[in-house]
Design a protein around this nucleic acid. Structure first.
Lengths: 135, 135
DNA sequence: AGATTATATTCATCATGATGAATAGATTAT
DNA sequence: ATAATCTATTCATCATGATGAATATAATCT
């Protein structure tokens, strides 16, 4: 008997969830947010090793969640589809947990993206005003 | 430096995704949908072994996604929060995949829930008209 | 009480995948 | 060309958890 809730229909969705089932990957997605981030930026912002970040970026890319753009030595990652943020927000809401999405320049990162916006660091708490979105 | 995107904030969300990263569990959640289902129903509807179903039900329960109600020999499972269906729907939408939620009586299931609605089986394809929700 | 049915749990196995370490590749600067 | 920097990949290890098999518990029925 055929069922609309087929196994094959749920497999790709479960695969997506499986990819999202690793905390550092969520941190990466949220750190990228609506913007763009290079590996070195994520490294500085999240405090993980370079290879560690790269490995998870690869996993997210293979899940078609990220796209890349190379600019010189830097590789910039951005969300392939921002609706992934809605998925995260909804999951967070279910747990009564707000999910903050943001891109914030990091002092330790020397990439052009951070360099141009680095003035913001002069503020006492630069993160406060920059929160783009809470769901 | 403190970051709004903290590791501890993403851990519970990733744990939720990890729980959802198994296809049969999604099948179970969708089979329950807005209704209620006993193990024997899921067994018949999805075609898995009893212990298999039970094990995944336990995982979903430990993730606080399901609640139970006992009625005689039968234990009925229902969603603890229907917003989980929105999470599934959004994930499905991201993949261009419609997610159908439904509870349909199954001939092979003798539980009261199925017995009372079993008349519907007389239709050539009882599943068609019963699709409750597509997102 | 014993039998039957529905569900839960335990245990062992096995595959998967996350992580760390080391290294390779790619690009720019000197 | 060499060095320096940024990123990717490979390899080995290890822990986790999904599954199957078997059994235990719970409730009802005769």
């Amino acid at each position: 008997m055929m069922n609309i809730i087929s196994h094959t229909a749920t497999v790709p969705i479960s695969a997506l969830f499986q990819t999202l089932g690793v905390a550092p990957r969520l941190e990466i997605l949220l750190a990228i947010g609506a913007g763009e981030a290079c590996v070195c930026h994520l490294e500085a912002a999240l405090g993980y090793r370079q290879a560690f970040i790269s490995q998870h970026l690869m996993a997210l890319r293979e899940a078609n969640l990220l796209e890349t753009r190379r600019e010189g030595r830097f590789v910039y990652y951005r969300l392939a589809d921002r609706r992934i943020l809605d998925v995260l927000a909804q999951a967070g809401a279910l747990l009564g947990q707000a999910v903050a999405v943001q891109f914030s320049p990091v002092a330790a990162c020397e990439c052009p993206n951070c360099a141009t916006t680095k003035v913001a660091r002069l503020c006492p708490d630069p993160l406060i005003g920059e929160q783009e979105r809470v769901a």
